[in-house]
């Protein structure tokens, strides 16, 4: 197992029988992820995609020993779904849902922390340990097994980077989409720590974007504690201040959170920062060849 998900994952899907949940559960099963069931309140006892449906997460933990949950429920109920998973003892919670009110997330994040669980997302593509488990909505076919760990706030930009890595012959240990919201569970810093400690990861690709200071915090840690090569790209060098660029968290406010500032902090930490998103793969390849 690399980071957070792998062969030991016993996954349930919250919002299992809904259209999003059904579709992606099918895709994850096809990829080979060990999906042991799902939760849709009121549909307990039914079978869906040849897997049992439960009314509550607690039942799923008891009956099929679920240890990981992926959430596809609508934004109004997603904060509640996260806390339900934490209360039931799920240790790895991945929330795909976009558009959850910040107020709900502040509380949900605290509950997850109090229960010693890890939350990835919300508003994220999920995570994947290629060849072992895909717990997310990413296209499995572009990933390949290897030793590069990847962290990113966005979906399609992650796919872009992964595609470049795969084409350069650089497989991935685990790729984590941490999400584009202002309040997220796993941050860049948390993910960097996990990848640094992971014996299956030899290099790290860090993709950030404007808004907040999470990349700077990760940079500070990398400077002191990370001995693996790191390549970074920050999206949004051309973004105007004060505007939300699609992601709720992608906003330069009060002159803070600019791409330039983040790039500077990362470079100062000894990280190789690429200006062009087209050069992520080739840059890491060159670094590893000369290392």
């Amino acid at each position: 197992m690399s980071v957070l998900v792998g062969n030991d994952t016993r996954l349930i899907v919250q919002g299992f029988t809904g259209s999003e949940g059904s579709f992606h559960a099918g895709q994850m099963i096809e990829y080979g992820t060990n999906v042991v069931g799902g939760v849709t309140p009121g549909k307990g006892g039914q079978t869906h995609l040849d897997r049992p449906v439960f009314n509550t997460v607690a039942e799923a933990v008891e009956e099929v020993q679920a240890n990981t949950s992926i959430i596809f429920v609508p934004p109004a109920f997603a904060g509640d779904a996260i806390t339900e998973a934490a209360f039931a003892g799920i240790k790895v919670i991945i929330c795909i849902t976009e558009g959850i009110p910040v107020k709900d997330m502040i509380v949900a994040k605290q509950v997850v922390k109090n229960h010693g669980a890890v939350l990835v997302g919300p508003n994220c593509p999920g995570l994947i340990t290629p060849g072992e488990a895909k717990v997310g909505i990413m296209p499995g076919s572009i990933f390949s097994k290897g030793t590069v760990g990847l962290i990113s706030r966005s979906g399609t930009l992650t796919y872009e980077a992964v595609d470049q890595l795969t084409k350069e012959g650089l497989g991935q240990s685990t790729a984590i989409g941490i999400g584009g919201d202002p309040v997220i569970g796993t941050t860049h810093l948390d993910a960097v720590k996990m990848l640094q400690e992971d014996p299956d990861t030899d290099a790290i690709v860090l993709i950030g974007e404007i808004g907040g200071s999470a990349e700077e915090e990760a940079a500070e840690y990398i400077a002191k504690h990370v001995d693996k090569p790191v390549v970074a790209f920050i999206a949004g060098s051309t973004a105007p201040p004060g505007r939300r660029m699609g992601h709720a968290g992608a906003i330069i406010s009060g002159g803070k959170g600019t791409a330039q500032e983040k790039k500077k902090a990362l470079a100062a930490a000894g990280i190789t920062v690429v200006d062009s998103p087209a050069e992520i793969g080739i840059t890491l390849k060159k670094m590893l060849e000369t290392a």
Partner: peptide, 24 residues
Amino acid sequence: VNGAGLAMATMDIIKLSGGEPANF
């Protein structure tokens, strides 16, 4: 573009290619 992160990255690449992004 599909996706906010890739959309920002696309704006950046337009600039690096000698243009200026007209929109997100």
